[in-house]
């Protein structure tokens, strides 16, 4: 009885946090905090999606921007066709998932690094396509460019957008939790560790990878579409930008790639960086790049991975091991 009660405490804490986050806009909180937390949810969803691909399925997919941009454009174009934006958000996710299915045939034939670069080409192709394509005529953002305003957003406040963000952020966490606790998650872990032996143990490698690709595409797409309802306009160069990949990758790697709680921790760091660095926009990429390199070299398991090690071995011993490793690296880099 005692144990079961204790088992419920973390659940209750999580529930309480979610409830507080949901009620946040109703109290008199400054808009800027809503904005921060909204970004946290969007980035969290991207990081969760990317973690599902790169961390759990062994798919180093460099195409989050393709899902985000496509979903954003779908939502925007639909609002031009007088379809409400919330339908557009869902449609955006579906289009992103369909895109994942469409390209899976070709990209899954490529292994490892081929897959990585094959997927890197996709957002670039889409960007070039959307620079040419004028899906709906008239009233473009400026001078016949390929940018579009999102229509039908009158009456939508920051609060509403915030709740949308909360919903997708929460959904992404729950989806990942369910996947990892299911047979599907076990299969993914087997594929990540060794896809040949997973395949010989009766796991349908292609199908499992496809499922996680579709799920990640959908989740990232919805997050992207919600982001564009907040931004209010879309334009190819920023929609299919490599910065989306950067955000997802940074959040996952800082927090710990392949760890369930990694994106949560990493995204907090990324959001702080995002807003702190916007004051120093000219060096923001430089700093993000340096952080990425340092984290990858010093703590490749990420912050949560580090915490996990601490708890496993007892804080002091882990710390000693870490510093010793550092000292060895510094004093004797050649042996390394």
């Amino acid at each position: 009885m005692q144990r079961t009660l204790r088992g419920y405490i973390p659940m209750a804490l999580i529930g309480l946090t979610v409830l507080m986050l949901a009620l946040l806009p109703t109290i008199d909180i400054s808009q800027i905090w809503l904005l921060y937390i909204f970004h946290f949810f969007i980035f969290l969803t991207l990081a969760n999606g990317w973690n599902l691909l790169a961390g759990f399925s062994g798919l180093l997919a460099l195409c989050p921007a393709a899902f985000i941009g496509l979903a954003g454009y779908t939502m925007t174009i639909l609002t031009w066709l007088k379809i409400p934006f919330y339908v557009g958000i869902l449609a955006g996710g579906i289009v992103a998932a369909l895109f994942a299915i469409l390209i899976s045939r070709s990209v899954f034939r490529m292994r490892g690094i081929y897959f990585a670069i094959g997927t890197l080409v996709l957002p670039e192709i889409l960007r070039l396509l959307f620079l040419r394509w004028r899906p709906v005529g008239g009233g473009q953002l400026h001078g016949g460019g390929a940018g579009y305003m999102v229509k039908g957003l009158t009456g939508i406040t920051m609060q509403n957008t915030y709740w949308l963000g909360l919903a997708i952020g929460l959904a992404s966490v729950i989806i990942i939790a369910i996947i990892l606790r299911s047979k599907f998650g076990l299969g993914l872990a087997a594929i990540r560790d060794n896809d040949a032996s997973a395949s010989s143990s009766g796991i349908n490698v292609f199908r499992l990878k496809l499922y996680s690709f579709i799920i990640a595409g959908f989740v990232m797409g919805v997050a992207g579409a919600i982001f564009y309802t907040y931004q209010g306009f879309i334009e190819p160069t920023s929609a299919f930008n490599i910065k989306w990949l950067m955000t997802a990758m940074l959040a996952t790697v800082i927090g710990g790639k392949g760890l369930e709680e990694g994106p949560l921790v990493g995204t907090i760091v990324v959001v702080i960086l995002h807003f702190q660095l916007s004051r120093y926009a000219n060096i923001s990429l430089l700093i993000q790049g340096i952080i990425l390199v340092i984290i990858m070299l010093a703590v490749p398991q990420g912050i949560t991975g580090l915490i996990r090690d601490f708890r496993k071995e007892g804080g002091l011993r882990a710390l000693r091991r870490l510093t010793q490793k550092r000292i060895k690296l510094i004093t004797n880099p050649r042996k390394d």
């Binding site: 180093l60 490892g112 690094i113 790049g289 990425l292 390199v293 990858m296």
Partner: peptide, 25 residues
């Protein structure tokens, strides 16, 4: 090389970071 010894993914991510640093510099 350090990242490479960890995994191919790590090397790719490091290279990505280096690219961003060069770009911004």
């Amino acid at each position: 090389y350090r990242a490479f010894k960890m995994s191919a993914d790590a090397a790719l991510i490091i290279a990505f970071g280096l690219g961003l640093i060069i770009q911004n510099a």
